[in-house]
């Protein structure tokens, strides 16, 4: 499936333990990758519905959406996108290293990916806090809403929260799984048994990054 392992000094042999019901290693790897892609298919359609709602709102209330989008923190969003792109880079690096069998370097890259993900969440948390200060949280009943005179802006801002919260939830679970995986991956002899886990997890991480790559322009950039 992936390129055969050419490593200057293969630290350890890399492989997969075969579960009972699979006939060959390749069949298990193919099943795992294909299974993850089938799951990512459903995630893509989940977010596709959200992007459709954003598009319909843009069609129904163009000026309100633009007014609301003006209040979004464009530059923090851009910075966040860069952060996720870097995490995607470190994740790809971790996958390459796992193929070469360099366990310690791989664990380093996994930790880097997790920390970049956490940085994204912190920046997003700051963004939410700034919105809270600016009274841009219409779904909070008690707080007055800044753009109350244009009710339709409320829709876009709320949708922004739903979309980014759903993405943040995926990122949060992603980081939690990643930390568990890294802890396991640091055990000796991990790569002989479960190198495939790193590859499959990499697909999931790249996907979260892909969703943000689409969400950032659709929510922030296009409506400015």
């Amino acid at each position: 499936m992936s390129a055969e392992f050419i490593g200057a000094n293969p630290a350890e042999p890399v492989g997969v333990t075969r579960a009972g019901h699979f006939a060959t290693d390749a069949q298990q790897r193919h099943a795992a990758t294909f299974g993850m892609w089938a799951w990512l298919l459903t995630e893509l359609l989940l977010f596709a519905g959200l992007f459709l709602t954003a598009l319909i709102l843009r069609l129904l209330h163009p000026e309100a959406v633009q007014a609301a989008a003006g209040h979004l923190k464009f530059w923090i969003g851009a910075a966040n996108t860069v952060v996720l792109l870097c995490s995607s880079l470190t994740m790809s690096a971790a996958i390459e290293l796992s193929r070469l069998g360099w366990q310690r370097m791989m664990v380093g890259c996994l930790l880097a990916t997790a920390s970049l993900g956490a940085l994204f969440l912190m920046l997003k948390g700051y963004e939410y806090h700034a919105d809270y200060e600016e009274q841009m949280m219409p779904f909070l009943a008690r707080r007055p809403y800044a753009l109350a005179e244009q009710p339709a802006t409320r829709l876009f801002v709320n949708l922004y929260y739903v979309a980014t919260a759903l993405h943040a939830l995926h990122l949060f679970t992603g980081i939690a799984i990643l930390l568990g995986l890294t802890w396991k991956a640091s055990r000796p002899g991990f790569l002989q048994r479960h190198q495939n886990w790193i590859e499959v997890y990499g697909l999931y991480w790249h996907f979260i990054d892909l969703i943000w790559i689409i969400a950032f322009p659709v929510l922030y950039v296009v409506n400015r």
Binding site: T42, E43, L44, L45, L46, F47, A48, G49, L50, T53, P138, F139, A141, P151, R154, L155, N158, L159, Y161, V162, L166
Partner: peptide, 19 residues
Amino acid sequence: PVITLALILLIAERAFHVG
């Protein structure tokens, strides 16, 4: 997945009045 999202939006609409 699409109805999962539709229901999430409905829950958000009913609980937080997303609108």
